[in-house]
Design a protein around this nucleic acid. Structure first.
Length: 269
DNA sequence: CAGGTCTCCTGCTAGC
DNA sequence: TGCTAGCAGGAGACCT
């Protein structure tokens, strides 16, 4: 599923493909994908807008247009495909952007993804971007910041790592990997973490996400095909979906706040 | 305010 | 073999 590294990869790929393209028309086959504004207004406003730039904030894709920002969250299964006009439209292709020579199709099996079309000014101070915490590489993400954010949290650290308002971009898979590398038990109450443990989380968040971005980037060449992206990072996972950890201890699978969680109780204390 | 639960969706799978 | 109930999961809504 798309987490920060996949979104970063999608962004870089799309930049090579659709920058400076003008949206001549848009077709919305499943209206619920469009969160704001109404579908009619969305279609009316986006017509004749040109893709000036593509950015990323957390797991959000930001398409900068002349007068608006198109924000797109892929959630579980959202993907973008470049297609020809005469390619068959399959049942999971919900939003189709038509350019002069080809089209961009938003594909989403579970229909969880969402799009916003927002006025260009002040997007970072409005929903949905205004409540996002620091990017993993932001200098302001330090031990003191986490201490302040974590001091009243008695929830398990696994749960809190997924809170996008503190650090943005960590998803379920990477949370498990970060905690393994940090040698922290996912059940550990967030407000009991030591400074060293907080520092480990900050460092390993960057390590895990950077590695995933690099691996995703290497396989992105196949992205323009109808097959989509198959990042290689999943071959590098240490605990998530694994039977044994790198030290060959048995991995435990549990549910923490409804999320499948893999960890090693010998390596993670 | 913090935390718990429900909801949205569909493809896949365990179990009969 | 074929059917179905149940599960997975990011994030917002709603409740306590």
């Amino acid at each position: 599923m798309p987490e920060l590294p996949e979104v970063e990869t999608v962004k870089e790929t799309l930049k090579k493909q659709i920058l400076n393209q003008k949206i001549l028309d848009v077709i919305v086959n499943y209206p619920n994908i469009i969160e704001k504004p109404s579908v009619l207004e969305f279609i009316k406003k986006i017509k004749n807008q040109t893709i000036i730039d593509i950015k990323r904030r957390g797991k959000w894709l930001l398409f900068e247009l002349n007068d608006y920002y198109l924000l797109s969250h892929l959630r579980m299964e959202g993907k973008y495909y470049i297609k020809n006009f005469n390619d068959e439209v399959t049942k999971h292709q919900h939003v189709i952007f038509k350019f002069q020579d080809f089209e961009l199709r938003y594909n989403d099996t579970r229909k969880f993804g969402r799009m916003y079309l927002l006025n260009k000014d002040n997007i970072y101070n409005n929903k949905p971007l205004n409540e996002l915490g620091f990017e993993p590489w932001d200098n302001k993400l330090n031990v003191n910041y986490l201490k302040e954010k974590y001091k009243n949290k008695i929830l398990p650290i696994k749960t809190v790592l997924l809170d996008q308002s503190i650090i943005t971009g960590i998803g379920n898979i990477y949370a498990d990997e970060i905690l393994y590398l940090s040698k922290i038990n996912p059940y550990k109450k967030t407000n009991t973490l030591s400074d060293d443990e907080l520092n480990s989380i900050i460092i390993n968040t960057k390590v895990v996400l950077e590695k995933a971005i690099n691996l995703g980037g290497t396989t992105i060449k196949s992205y323009t095909s109808s097959e989509g992206v198959h990042g290689r990072f999943q071959n590098e996972l240490l605990v998530h979906t694994k039977k044994n950890c790198p030290k060959n201890h048995k991995i435990i699978k549990v549910k923490i706040n409804g999320r499948g969680t893999y960890y090693c109780d010998k390596c993670q204390k």
